[in-house]
């Protein structure tokens, strides 16, 4: 799960090329790895890939700060 998301961010969503690769604990939001639009795309990707539905009230920082957070969040939905 972690690898799939990391790969998708690196290849499709990152604003700039991430040279040393993305790590699961990297801050996606504060460091500008993905912008607002990228975040929206990431949410749709997760919804499709893991066949879950991200409710509007779950669209919060704590669930999306890092790839690790995202995985933990997805696991609660599976």
């Amino acid at each position: 799960m972690e690898k799939t998301i990391i790969k998708h961010i690196e290849n499709e969503l990152a604003v700039e090329v991430i040279e040393d690769g993305l790590e699961a604990s990297d801050d996606l939001l504060g460091s500008g790895i993905v912008d607002s639009l990228g975040m929206m795309k990431l949410v749709s990707f997760i919804e499709e890939q893991f066949t879950i539905e991200v409710a509007p009230e779950e669209m919060v920082i704590d669930n999306f700060m890092t790839v690790k957070n995202i995985c933990e969040y997805i696991k609660t939905k599976l």
Binding site: L29, G32, S36, M59, V60
Partner: peptide
């Protein structure tokens, strides 16, 4: 924070 600007619910909170 940059993060809050991407999540309106967090921003409102």
């Amino acid at each position: 924070s940059d993060a809050h600007l991407k999540f309106p619910i967090s921003l409102a909170e």
